[in-house]
Write a protein that binds this DNA or RNA. Structure first.
Lengths: 247, 247
DNA sequence: AGTATTAATGCACAAAAACGCAAAAACTTT
DNA sequence: AAAGTTTTTGCGTTTTTGTGCATTAATACT
């Protein structure tokens, strides 16, 4: 097994489990912990992962540390600025939760009129601050981690609605495998969201690109728009361009 | 669990609860209090949180919706303290919105287990911060002023559920005329809430007593508990005592 | 004031990282 | 093919880091 094979294995493991232990890897790969540590150091150097004492974490791991967050906030605001342009007066939309989505909602002009469906109480509150918007909460049991309403009820309710555009964040997005997610319950709801929308916009920071999680939400050709903080002509976005409009 | 993960967890808890106790964290995270204290010290050093005796506080706690405009916070906390005692482990409850209700939800102990239905996204979020609670949002169109979900949908959903106790705030409460409300849409939802509950608790500051609004929600004999900031033996509460339990 | 928590300090121990070094492997050059 | 060079890997040793415990100091509560 070559060094780069080993390293791509490590990356896969991290995408799958969100974290790895040096000790475990050394057993799985049948190399010394020392070698694993060196691999992790290299990957961290290249910005692929976050190294911590005892192993490493996924980069997309939500870091509450201020510096990290504020960096992300700027990128997210950039994304939000582009995403909000997709919203036309009078449209009916469906939106998911997440910090990027929150930034977008905040950028919606006060004068905007339209109808918003959402499975997120937080988005609902934020949307309700806009007097011109019709906000409809799709109820259900709140999932503790994702903070969205899940279960049978929202899924069947979603089956009965038809919206112009659905905004989804991305846990994982790959140019071949499409959108993916790690939680079963959340996956079910998001699938229902995709089904009830005519068009699908994925808005995400670029670091979530090219990663694959356990459950597939939809193939690439179902995605209509991809909004990231990068310039649309950035080379990282090239593989996506044939299937969707990159903004 | 890595140190970083533990610290993220702490941050999350603080964002959710607005405060944490070292002792509780040490149990939840299964580490010594000493370690928790060191984590808190590091996070405080990094400016993430504010360390206080016994735990830590959120640095800049604010909801997207400016809820801090509320007045008589002290009285409301007093009410909340009494109201929370009505909640027994394992109960199924239904709660309305309002600042007093918010205070009450915040006082629910972390260890409490039960199922909460609510038509308020804000309450839902606050409830969802408690790991032991099942939180079910009853969806609908958000009413801009009352910030609760209204319309036909929540009313029919409410018709299908049965809860042990319903907490309602009061716009108007009179010892002869009962509970009253001024908005038609809101009235309909609250009526449905009352219908689906075995017992009804009204929690309100005393200044709302002896006032009547356009629409009647229910007669006095439907109310089981009345919680105010006053002493139960206060003379203002006397007219209510024959119909309900005054706390 | 007195008691009970909570914080701080120093210390011990274990786990992990860093470092230097040497052997092995892969790659170059002759 | 052989020799030389570079890269990679593993091993022992030393440092550093993380954690818990005991003792003492500080702080809240009544």
């Amino acid at each position: 097994m070559f060094k780069n094979e080993r390293q791509s294995f490590i990356i896969k493991q991290i995408n799958l489990h969100n974290k790895v232990l040096s000790s475990e890897l050394s057993v799985k790969l049948n190399v010394s912990e020392d070698t694993v540590r060196r691999d992790l150091a290299e990957l961290a150097e290249a910005g692929e992962i976050i190294k911590v004492h005892g192993g490493a974490l996924s980069k997309s791991y939500h870091y509450p540390i201020q510096q990290n967050l504020s960096y992300a906030v700027e990128a997210k605001k950039e994304i939000a600025k582009k995403a909000v342009k997709l919203i036309q007066p009078g449209m009916t939309l469906l939106i998911e939760a997440g910090t990027t989505m929150l930034e977008m909602v905040r950028m919606i002009p006060d004068t905007m009129e339209g109808t918003f469906f959402t499975v997120s109480p937080l988005m609902a509150l934020e949307l309700a601050a806009h007097p011109g918007l019709n906000v409809i909460v799709i109820g259900g049991k709140i999932d503790y981690t994702s903070q969205i309403n899940i279960g049978e009820r929202p899924i069947s309710e979603l089956a009965d609605i038809r919206v112009d555009l659905c905004f989804l964040g991305a846990h994982g997005l790959d140019s071949k495998e499409g959108l993916s997610e790690s939680e079963w319950n959340v996956t079910q709801v998001k699938k229902a969201m995709i089904k009830s929308a005519s068009k699908l916009a994925v808005i995400t920071i670029s670091e979530k690109l090219n990663s694959i999680f356990k459950m597939r939400l939809c193939p690439v050709h179902n995605i209509d728009y991809l909004v990231t903080e990068l310039d649309p002509n950035d080379k990282h976005l090239k593989p996506y361009k044939k299937n969707m409009q990159v903004i």
